[in-house]
């Protein structure tokens, strides 16, 4: 889910994860109302909501152990907790107090807390905020691995369209609590935004999947290398003058369109 600040992303996640009450409508997990059957439903959910500061004076191991106990109703053995630490790359920081972790490491631990006990539904609210490049790359690997592991629903909110575009299958744009766009992402494809000298050029490129954005500004969907070569050949053959060219993922392109940017 993507949307500007205040669009209702976190609130929606809080509702879905059974974190808050007193709203209109209902949230169901496998057909069960989360408000009426909270414990049963949230057992299937692992959530990272907002940006929790966590408890400064305990270590990552203690924090994960508590989450494991509460979710599974029993103590986790050392291997199970170590596995969670490994998942988020914090094994070497196992015994360090949380206040001594960097903000990116705290974020990783928060993600680890959501993953403890392998829940069927994972809800992550802006998981890559405060993360360095290494953290983001670890996160992408982790999400791809979780998706490949089994039949799991992962809901993520983020502002970082480039990351979202790479790891998500479906994208929802939210604004003022309303869904603006909801579509399946074509991960293989990308858009080339061409600024040409004439709008009529879009007719010349009609053999491609194009969209006229503004006077002379054309978006072309490229899904493979052949299409790219064909595009440049056509541009050359028709003598179309290109003033600028910009590459965009589908997520970025749709976002700009949805929010008139």
């Amino acid at each position: 889910m993507v949307g500007p600040n205040g669009s209702g992303k976190s609130t929606l996640l809080k509702i879905i994860s059974g974190c808050i009450e007193g709203y209109l409508g209902s949230s169901f997990v496998d057909g069960v109302n989360i408000v009426e059957n909270h414990k049963r439903c949230v057992r299937k959910i692992g959530a990272l909501i907002e940006n929790p500061h966590l408890y400064s004076y305990v270590n990552s191991y203690d924090m994960l152990q508590l989450a494991y106990k509460l979710r599974n109703g029993r103590n986790g053995n050392e291997d199970e907790i170590d596995n969670s630490l490994n998942q988020v790359g914090l094994m070497s920081k196992k015994d360090i107090q949380i206040r001594d972790l960097s903000s990116g490491e705290k974020k990783r631990l928060s993600i680890g807390l959501a993953l403890v006990g392998s829940p069927d539904i994972i809800i992550l609210d802006e998981p890559t905020n405060n993360m360095d490049a290494e953290g983001v790359s670890m996160f992408q690997r982790l999400i791809n691995q979780l998706r490949d592991d089994g039949n799991r629903l992962i809901i993520i909110t983020s502002h970082e369209l480039d990351i979202i575009g790479k790891i998500c299958d479906r994208l929802i744009f939210l604004i003022n609590g309303q869904i603006r766009r909801d579509f399946i992402i074509n991960k293989e494809g990308y858009f080339l935004i061409l600024q040409t000298d004439r709008s009529a050029n879009s007719v010349a490129l009609r053999t491609f999947k194009t969209e006229l954005l503004a006077e002379g500004k054309i978006a072309v969907l490229i899904e493979n290398e052949d299409e790219l070569n064909d595009l440049f050949r056509t541009i050359s053959e028709r003598g179309i003058k290109i003033k600028s060219i910009e590459k965009m993922t589908q997520a970025e392109f749709e976002y700009k369109k949805a929010f008139n940017q």
Partner: peptide, 14 residues
């Protein structure tokens, strides 16, 4: 204040 409460409210506890 620290939003830590959400860690518990999304767990199977009352």
């Amino acid at each position: 204040e620290s939003k830590n409460i959400y860690q518990f409210m999304t767990m199977p506890i009352s």
